[in-house]
Amino acid sequence: MSTDLSATLGESALVLFSGGQDSTTCLAWALERYERVETVGFDYGQRHRIELDCRQDVLAALREKFPHWGARLGEDRIISISALADIAETSLTSEAEFRLQADGLPNSFVPGRNLIFLSFAAAVAYRRDLRRIVTGVCETDYSGYPDCRDDTIKAMQLALNLGLERRFVLETPLMWIDKRQTWELAHQLGGDDLVDLIRDRTHSCYAGDRSQVHDWGHGCGACPACELRAAGWRAWRRDARS
């Protein structure tokens, strides 16, 4: 994707980076735009904690394959929020079977997770003098989580700016695109090299399974995250061939 970098000359950003497809695409998006980009991940007792191990592999691959981005990559940190698992009792923080709850939300919804993530990220951004905070939440192609909605993010930006007396900008590059378009965005940003990196090195599977390899990457193939990723890959590849 072509970008007028002069419009963001001197800008800095903090990317919420889990090691998954969406956050890696967002990281590439930020590296294409901003002069200094730092990353933050969260250990909250997730059953797919293997994503945290993938983070460093993805960062190393980005530096190797995209040296112009690597020069902009700054400090990375992981913040422990273990209390979230203690109070959440969801299929993302236990071995519970993935299912819909009585309220219509999937039981993979961790109440308040993204709100907590953004609060911690804003505290890091405040201390590190980073104005833009980039997160991979999406309202178009998601599991129905209310803390991924555009209205929620806009309200959170206002709350953070008032509470910290800063002018943070919460960036959501994926908000209005689906998984097919997310694969396409990655290709626009970094071509086949970035698509291959995301497919081979990132982790999205809620079950934490990296023993099975598919054309779209590693995962159990049956959880909601794998189904979304696989469907998006197939749609993108079909469109690319037509």
Rank of each mutant, 00 (worst) to 15 (best):
A7M: 14
A7C: 13
L14A: 07
L16D: 09
W29D: 02
W29S: 00
Y34K: 00
Y34Q: 02
E38K: 12
V40C: 10
G45N: 01
R49F: 12
L59P: 04
L59E: 13
K65T: 08
H68D: 09
E75W: 15
I78V: 15
I79N: 04
S82R: 07
L84S: 07
D86K: 11
L92M: 15
S94H: 05
S94I: 06
A96L: 14
E97I: 09
A102K: 02
N107C: 02
R113H: 05
L115T: 12
I116C: 12
F117T: 06
S119D: 03
R131F: 07
E139F: 06
Y142V: 05
Y145T: 01
K154L: 11
K154W: 07
L158T: 09
L160W: 00
L162G: 01
G163S: 06
L164N: 08
R166C: 06
T172S: 14
M175G: 07
T182S: 08
A186N: 07
Q188N: 13
L189I: 05
L189Y: 04
I198D: 00
Y206G: 06
G208E: 09
Q212V: 06
V213N: 07
H214W: 12
G219Q: 07
G219W: 00
C223R: 03
P224S: 01
A225Q: 00
A231M: 13
W236I: 00
A240Q: 14
A240N: 05
